[in-house]
Design a protein around this nucleic acid. Structure first.
Lengths: 189, 189
DNA sequence: ACCTGAACACCGTTCAAGT
DNA sequence: ACCTGAACACCGTTCAAGT
């Protein structure tokens, strides 16, 4: 086992925990037990909880953007793009009623150390940027400001749909809500 | 000071703390310090943290519904109703970037004791019910199911707008997002 | 390079004891 | 009726010590 392996196992395990219980709900002792080391050893890889949280958010953003950019590269269909987008959030709910890592952390805003806040912000920015790109492809007549505003609204609405559906532990709430967004024309396609 | 007074002070103080830091972020010791008693004394009024959380959510729901029902009684104007509705969430952000008590708790779903979950669910139900009533007044041609679905979508979208705006600590994000919802026709009026 | 046990100040909770 | 101090098992963090 090299350095990287243990570090990766810690991150994968912690990511699941945060998506389920939140940043505050993440316990170093519980995490260590699951990984099979002592809690003090976690601090060797991530000096503070904030370091771990920031690393998790950064990786989560990287993975998400790789998926989304692949989606745009592989298809020219607006419907495929938007279904691919909403499916990220749907998949989290399907996966043990988990939440978007940065969505759940946004709710804990006041408890987050600055280095984590920065990464949560970056996730939001990149989501809005990607959605703006999609809007530019399908609604080029809109100004850049209007595209950004609509992209922000789409992102916020999807996060809200996930939050509420999760609170009900009912994925059909998510599906029905996304469909209502589509009917209203909030989502393109 | 009667029983009720201390109890009320505890609830008012705890409510602010939960709207800022969440259920997990609420500390009995910190709460006690602010109230001016010892943490063990909190347990006299609320045996467990779950009891306190449930009482907070129930009171929050009661207060909100009293406001919303007053709104519908005092005016016949759809715009006034919807502005009154979104203003609840806007006011929380204006008040030290706080969140809807039940919105922040919904994100902590997995950490909530059952008695708190029940109250968070009730809040959602009553919001959807109130919004359905508004939709029935302005879009009577819709089926009850469709009204409920749209009401759920409105509630989820507003919660999401608050969540994202709070993460940015920027109320203009909330305002722009709500306006985008209105332009799309997701919000009536 | 990586891990550990022990200590620190925190946490919710319990309970016998005070008034 | 209401409050308290002390104890319990938890928490993140630090650090000297191990290999």
């Amino acid at each position: 086992m090299s350095i990287t392996d243990t570090r990766e196992i810690i991150m994968a395990t912690a990511r699941k925990m945060v998506q389920t219980r939140g940043y505050n709900g993440l316990s170093f002792r519980e995490l260590a037990k699951e990984v099979g080391i002592k809690s003090a050893s976690i601090h060797y890889h991530f000096p503070t909880k904030g370091d771990l949280g920031a690393a998790l958010a950064r990786r989560y953003t990287e993975d998400g953007m790789a998926y989304l950019n692949g989606l745009r590269a592989e298809s020219d269909d607006l419907g495929t793009w938007m279904k691919g987008y909403t499916d990220i959030f749907r998949a989290a709910l399907l996966n043990d009623n988990r939440m978007c890592l940065c969505g759940i952390m946004a709710a804990e805003f006041d408890d987050l150390p600055p280095e984590v806040r920065v990464e949560v912000d970056a996730f939001t920015d990149l989501n809005v940027q990607w959605l703006s790109g999609v809007l530019d492809a399908c609604r080029p007549q809109l100004s850049a400001e209007e595209q950004t505003r609509q992209a922000m609204a789409i992102y916020a609405a999807i996060e809200g749909a996930q939050l509420v559906a999760r609170g009900r532990d009912d994925i059909s709430v998510f599906d029905a809500t996304v469909q209502a967004y589509q009917s209203a024309g909030l989502l393109p396609g």
